[in-house]
Design a protein around this nucleic acid. Structure first.
Lengths: 133, 133
DNA sequence: AATAAAATAGTAATCGTTATTGTTATTAGA
DNA sequence: TCTAATAACAATAACGATTACTATTTTATT
C-alpha cells in the first residue's frame, strides 16, 4: 500500500522511452538519460522501469538472448529479433488476440496473455553476409 | 571444425532430460544428475546443454522470468508459464507454422522461426488463491 | 516550517552463465 | 596394444545483468 510519489527521474525515464522507437536495454537508456541527469544511478533506472512495467505503462521484452529490453508501446504487437546482431524490430501486423482463447482449450490454467517473438536474420545482416561470401 | 567426442556425462544429461516431461533448469538437472555423477560440474551441464541445443537435439526455453529451461521435445509446440509459481507446461496444441509466413509479409528480415509463450495462473495456484481468499 | 514517507545515488551483493586452467578420458593411428 | 593428439572434464574464477542495502535528499502532508 505505499503511495507513489513523483520523481523527475522517473518522468524522464518514461519520456525518454516513449520518444524512441527502438527497444533499448536498461543500460542503453541509462547512458542516454545521463545526458540530462549526469548523476542518475543505474539502479534508479531499473527500479523505475520495473515500476512502470508493473503499472502497465511500458512493456518488458525478454527476447531469449541478451539483456531485457523495454518498449514504450503497450499495444498488443509482435517483435522480430535478429539472431546475428540482436536488433529488435516491431512487426506492424495485428496481434492474434484470439490465440489466448485457442490455447485456453488445451490448458488447465487460466491464460491471460501471450508473447510471440519471430527469429531470423535482419536485412542489414543478410547484406553483410552476402558481401563477405 | 572440432570433432565431437563421446562423453558419459553428456549422454547422461541428455537421457535425464529426455526422461522427464517437466522443463528443468540447468541447476535442477545438475542436482538430479549428481545422483549418478557426484563429481559432475555445473559448467559441464551448461556446456553440454548448449552443445545439444546447437545440435538441435534439445530446446532452450526463455520464458521471460527466471533462469532458462530445457526441453527434450524438439517438435514445434508452445508452452504455458504460470506467473505465480513459474511452472512451465506443454500445451498439447499444434504450433502455427504458417505464422512465420504471415509475419514475413511485415518484416524486411528473413524469419525462420518463432516462439510463443502463454502466460497466466496455473490450476494449482488458482486453487491456492481461492482458498486464502 | 516541521514531519513522514518515498525516491535517490552510490555501492555491495546476488544470480545465472560463461571462461579459464590443469587434469582425465576418448579416439585414431602406429 | 601402445602412443599421441585432442576433446571433455572438474574446479574455480570471472562476467554481465539485475537487485538489495544504506545513508541522504525529495516530495507530499500537516
Amino acid at each position: 500500500m505505499k503511495a507513489l510519489k513523483y520523481s523527475r527521474q522517473r518522468e524522464c525515464i518514461k519520456d525518454c522511452l516513449m520518444r524512441r522507437h527502438d527497444h533499448p536495454t536498461a543500460d542503453t537508456l541509462y547512458m542516454s538519460i545521463r545526458e540530462e541527469f549526469p548523476n542518475i544511478s543505474l539502479g534508479t533506472v531499473y527500479r523505475n522501469l520495473n515500476l512502470l512495467v508493473d503499472l502497465g505503462e511500458i512493456r518488458k521484452l525478454s527476447c531469449g538472448s541478451g539483456p531485457d529490453r523495454f518498449d514504450g508501446d503497450t499495444s498488443p504487437h509482435y517483435h522480430f529479433v535478429c539472431r546475428e546482431c540482436g536488433e529488435v524490430e516491431d512487426l506492424p501486423m495485428e496481434a492474434f488476440q484470439d490465440l489466448n482463447q485457442a490455447a485456453q482449450r488445451y490448458c488447465s490454467g487460466r491464460i491471460d496473455s501471450h508473447a510471440t517473438y519471430f527469429y531470423g536474420t535482419c536485412e542489414n545482416c543478410s547484406k553483410k553476409s552476402a558481401q563477405s561470401a
